[in-house]
């Protein structure tokens, strides 16, 4: 399989020079990985920069400059995808930080049934996203769904979680948090367990309250965990596709469309240039948010 690819277009930079190196750590160990990564990931990424500037049918590409990007910013439904992506990413990562931290603190305390709680909260991380999406779509049905029929028992008229344009995106984001908060929790647990116990003992001797200990010891010293959770869930949230596709397909209308679902829809419709421009927009969005953010967060951490 690998040989098939090397034959036609291995990038020149990955070819090793015929010099025999006596090193026990030969550079050609990079080669298999570099070829697969270079051909199937790097090359399409670079090519996307060109194709995003074209009207493209897969057979020929007409150069149209920034036309696709203009369309992205002008068409209301494309622009909404961009805004929704940001809302979705910020909402999911914010909730994962807050709930994940609360659960992490709780499950590193002396609370009973820690093993059970951890296992139950973490398991959804490993379950198929599409399966989770379909299950919650059924539970969130406006009239027949279990959530609204339960709410009706106590006299609350539940909203159309996925059919009301005001709720659809938020409902999907909440399911995303349901599925992913277990990961944030175990990351926080690892971070909190690593904090030396002496700090808490010293604080107790000084008469600190539980909240003071949390604010001045746990929160700052669990900063690496917070950074990991924020970065991971922002990247995941910005790129999120399968859950939204399984639950709303971007609907009702375009109210829960995100860039990743726009990319798929434009691809299905045959607008390959526009779809690729969507990819570039997403790439730029991720890079613009993640790179400065991780630099900023990591600097704050050094100061502590």
């Amino acid at each position: 399989m690998v040989a098939e690819i090397t034959r036609d277009d291995a990038p020149a930079s990955t070819r090793i020079k015929p010099v025999r190196s006596p090193s026990p750590y030969p550079s050609w160990f990079y080669l298999p990985a570099a070829i697969i990564y270079g051909v199937l990931f790097l090359f399409p990424t670079v090519a996307s920069l060109f194709f995003s500037l074209t009207r493209w049918t897969l057979f020929d590409a007409t150069f149209i400059g920034l036309g696709n990007f203009q369309q992205f910013l002008k068409e209301p439904f494309l622009l909404q995808g961009l805004v929704n992506t940001l809302i979705y990413a910020v909402l999911t990562s914010g909730l994962k930080v807050v709930i994940g931290l609360a659960l992490g603190v709780m499950l590193t305390s002396q609370i009973v049934a820690r093993g059970y709680l951890r296992a139950v909260i973490f398991f959804p991380v490993l379950v198929s996203t599409v399966g989770v999406g379909i299950t919650f779509t059924t539970l969130m049905h406006p009239t027949a769904g279990a959530i609204n029929t339960t709410l009706a028992l106590v006299g609350i008229h539940g909203p159309g979680w996925l059919t009301d344009p005001h709720f659809a995106l938020i409902s999907v984001a909440l399911v995303d948090v349901w599925k992913g908060v277990g990961l944030a929790m175990v990351i926080y647990m690892a971070g909190i367990v690593a904090i030396p116990q002496e700090f808490y003992e010293a604080a107790s001797i000084d008469g600190a309250t539980g909240w003071q200990k949390f604010g001045s010891i746990t929160l700052p010293l669990a900063m690496p965990a917070t950074i990991t959770v924020i970065i991971l869930s922002l990247i995941g949230g910005l790129r999120s596709f399968d859950l939204i596709w399984a639950m709303t397909k971007g609907g009702p209308g375009f109210t829960s469309d995100v860039i990743a679902s726009v990319i798929y829809k434009q691809y299905q419709a045959g607008f390959y240039g526009l779809s690729t421009a969507g990819n570039v927009v997403l790439f730029v969005l991720v890079a613009v948010l993640i790179v400065p953010l991780s630099a900023f967060l990591n600097r704050r951490q050094v100061e502590l």
Partner: peptide
């Protein structure tokens, strides 16, 4: 780059 860049879908299909 591999961790953060979303894969370019249509160029990959073309390739």
């Amino acid at each position: 780059a591999g961790l953060i860049i979303p894969p370019a879908v249509v160029p990959t299909i073309w390739l």
